[in-house]
């Protein structure tokens, strides 16, 4: 089962004693801060977790994979995320468990 904003708010409620409304608002404010920073072109470095950044993409020719029709892809700005070494190590440390868990990947 995926972790959601409601689960994060519950953690704040259980572990810090914020009331339910405060916890819910805090979770929202946290992600909004990251969105605002990225919107203004700033990166966000959360040590121990990872870094969010923005990247400019040049326009390039694209194709509708269904029809084969050529459609230009316009220049755009996209969000990138790079997990910190610490997070990668934590995920790697659980490799055995993940293998057994028949984790389903998208793509």
């Amino acid at each position: 089962m995926a972790v959601t904003k409601a689960d994060l708010a519950t953690t704040l409620f259980n572990e810090l004693g914020l009331n339910k409304r405060e916890a819910k608002e805090f979770v929202e404010a946290f992600f909004e801060k990251i969105r605002i920073a990225l919107e203004t072109g700033e990166s966000v470095k959360l040590s121990g977790f990872g870094n969010f950044g923005v990247r400019e993409k040049n326009p390039r020719p694209g194709r509708n994979p269904k029809t084969g029709e050529e459609i230009p892809i316009t220049a755009r700005r996209v969000v990138t995320f790079k997990a910190s070494q610490k997070l990668k190590d934590r995920v790697a440390a659980n490799a055995d468990m993940l293998r057994k868990n028949t984790l389903k990947h998208e793509e």
Binding site: A2, E15, L16, F30, R35, F49, L87, M97, N101
Partner: peptide, 25 residues
Amino acid sequence: LAVKGMLECMADALAEGKRIEVRGF
């Protein structure tokens, strides 16, 4: 503590192989 707790909760979830879904983010 709240910021650290949220990040810890998200890192724990990934380490356990769980997905995290934050609507709008």
